[in-house]
């Protein structure tokens, strides 16, 4: 047994002797941790699927299982709070597997000194979010730790959901010719949280797009659309999701940048901060890969749902090397790569 643990650390020490914030940014360094350290050590058939959640065969039935931790600052921000986010994050990960979310666990790590009233607000928000998505909070845990910077709170949720169809929704199911559909505009969550956290003021307040995706996904499944893959666009934004799926699927994605909806206020904020909105975090947005024959049906079905009114085709799957190519309105193109960590505001 103990022989197993003499293996050398797969992240070279002189590269990163310490964890930096970039390791949690959803970019290249986050993926390096997973790909080089976690996944090879825990190697099994399930962890190889590299999806938002895992499909487990239990007693002949298939269940989806996932977990998500939430460390967002501030705890409350325009359009949401850490409580609803903790529920929606896990519900959305289950939904992206094509599962119907059923049960969630709820664990708090709380710093001493957190106002009881703050905790109560968050718990109430969790209750509302659970009711909205039809999940039950069935188990949990609470730990209190010494105070560090400020009285803070972190939440972990894990969830299971049932699979009520025979589709295998994962990157490996993607086929050449599939169209890539996005359910709405990008960047609102990331910009809302950052603007609020950093005290940046814009003409109008930008609110997070934080929303549960289980219902809109269910409507696609009810419409019998043979979904090949789905992914919600959280940290690292659209680009991280596309690059990750492209690599896993071994296919080339071509994106038409001018089709991607981005609200004026979000574009303006991104211009000021030097951000590329395609990399900014979202919490109620997802991409769907469907066969081309189902393009219209998918769009129709999405557009009937409040979270899919601006649904649009943003690209297609092509043969060739696994990479993501974005073409703009005048024919210029660029290859999209993940960032190393989070985007940082630029000097000029």
């Amino acid at each position: 047994m103990d022989g197993e643990f003499k293996l050398q650390c797969p992240i070279p020490l002189n590269d990163y002797p310490h964890i930096t914030m970039a390791h949690g940014g959803g970019g290249k360094l986050s993926h390096q941790l997973i790909a080089d350290m976690f996944r090879p050590l825990f190697a099994n058939d399930f962890i190889q699927a590299e999806h938002d959640g895992v499909l487990l065969p239990i007693d002949g039935a298939k269940m989806a299982f996932t977990t998500d931790s939430h460390v967002i600052q501030p705890l409350f921000y325009p359009g949401g709070d850490i409580g609803s986010l903790a529920v929606y994050g896990t519900v959305n990960d289950l939904s992206m597997c094509g599962a119907r979310p059923l049960y969630l666990s709820l664990s708090f790590i709380i710093e001493e000194g957190l106002p009881m009233q703050t905790l109560w607000r968050i718990v109430q928000s969790i209750k509302l979010a659970a009711d909205r998505t039809g999940v039950q909070i069935v188990t949990g845990d609470t730990k209190v730790v010494h105070r560090t910077n400020g009285a803070d709170l972190f939440i972990n949720t894990a969830g299971i959901g049932s699979l009520e169809h025979s589709l295998i929704i994962q990157p490996a199911s993607i086929e050449v010719g599939d169209v890539i559909i996005l359910n709405g505009d990008l960047g609102r969550h990331g910009i809302a949280v950052m603007a609020y956290r950093e005290g940046l003021e814009f003409e109008s307040q930008i609110e997070s797009d934080c929303a549960p995706l289980n219902d809109i996904v269910q409507s696609l499944l009810n419409a019998k659309i043979p979904i090949h893959c789905m992914r919600d666009l959280t940290r690292g934004g659209l680009v991280s999701a596309l690059v990750e799926i492209s690599q896993k699927a071994g296919k080339r994605f071509e994106i038409n940048e001018s089709t991607i909806p981005i609200r004026e206020d979000v574009r303006g904020a991104c211009e000021i901060l030097g951000f590329d909105p395609l990399f900014v975090a979202n919490e109620g947005k997802f991409i769907t890969f469907v066969p081309p024959a189902f393009t219209e049906k998918t769009l129709d079905s999405m557009r009937q749902h409040p979270l899919g009114r601006d649904a649009v085709v943003i690209g297609t799957v092509r043969p060739g090397e696994p990479r993501v190519l974005a073409t703009n309105s005048f024919g210029g193109s660029r290859i999209l790569f993940m960032f190393s960590g989070e985007q940082l505001p630029r000097i000029c």
Partner: peptide
């Protein structure tokens, strides 16, 4: 400014100092 954070010096960058 944000973009100096990841610029490496001889041994490390400001993000690592922060870590």
């Amino acid at each position: 400014f944000g973009d100096m954070m990841r610029v490496p010096g001889s041994h490390e960058d400001l993000l690592t100092v922060k870590a």
